[in-house]
Design a protein around this nucleic acid. Structure first.
Lengths: 156, 156
DNA sequence: GTCGGTGCAAACGCTTTGCAACCTA
DNA sequence: TAGGTTGCAAAGCGTTTGCACCGAC
């Protein structure tokens, strides 16, 4: 995938700028993040998948790499209420226009890449004097597929 | 505080309805939650405070009580990105109109009790077919006090 | 040769659980 | 007195850290 290679070299550059190396382990981690984009995988889940490409890698290295990528703002760490950290590759074009829909029936996590909060953030500044730099917005509810199923069951 | 007593008996009723008892430990926990409302304390912090009223209480009981109150929707469990659960007494009149402002300078957590998301939730239903039941919204940024300080420093 | 990066195992902090004793409705 | 509730200690789980070894520049 050319697209993927571009991403990797771009990330390699960022690492270099920070005086750090693009090791095979880090490359494999980024590859896996790219491959499972928007899946919101935990460190342990990523570890299992990364091992397919880089079997010798250790869990600690995965954590360290994810921390590093988070600091460089290449990935975003999200914590839902289960307390487990999940990791998301950040799109280059995306500031913080990124929300989650968490279905309480099937557990699926959907992403919305659209800024729903522009006006709301202005309001927060106006009313509370709070300057918003970033946000975390997760909606809990029922996704389209599950709603349909529920309606179906109610009738049947 | 009459207000507080009302709350306690009301919560006692809810427990009763669920076939559970209002023990001294639970009473002390609710009292402390009332006393430090909107402080977003962790279980450990609450434990320390509850012990002032009920010195024999164990940490496990605090966790169990908080779990119980969360299930009964009397308190709300919030997890910011540090991964530690914090607990918030739910106001009777409040559905989910409750957001957080997290200052990245001083670490303070402010609450907003105002529904900023009514229109946004309609949009989510319209565009994504997702029926919103609840949400978590946290703004990361700089609070009014810290903004003022920063402006002052820039000038001085 | 230096210095960052790695794997392993041990440690860590928050949370949950097993169990015997307790106590309240 | 029956069943929920408790305190304690141990275990659980995700995450971090110490350390010796490795490998690229």
């Amino acid at each position: 995938m050319v697209f993927q290679e571009e991403h990797i070299t771009e990330i390699g550059k960022k690492l270099h700028q920070a005086g750090m190396k693009l090791t095979p382990q880090r490359r494999a981690t980024v590859n896996t993040l790219l491959k499972y984009q928007t899946k919101h995988l935990s460190a342990e889940e990523l570890f299992t998948l990364i091992k397919l490409e880089e079997p010798e890698i250790g869990l600690a290295t995965v954590y360290r790499t994810l921390d590093l990528l988070t600091e460089l703002q290449i990935v975003e760490r999200v914590t839902f209420d289960d307390g487990v950290a999940r990791y998301d590759l950040r799109r280059a074009d995306q500031q913080h226009f990124h929300h989650h829909l968490l279905c309480s029936v099937c557990g699926k996590v959907e992403e919305i890449h659209e800024d729903l909060l522009g006006e709301v953030e202005n309001e927060v500044l106006r009313k509370y004097g709070f300057t918003v730099q970033d946000h975390r917005l997760t909606f809990h509810g029922v996704c389209e597929a599950c709603s349909r199923k529920e309606r179906y069951q109610d009738q049947g």
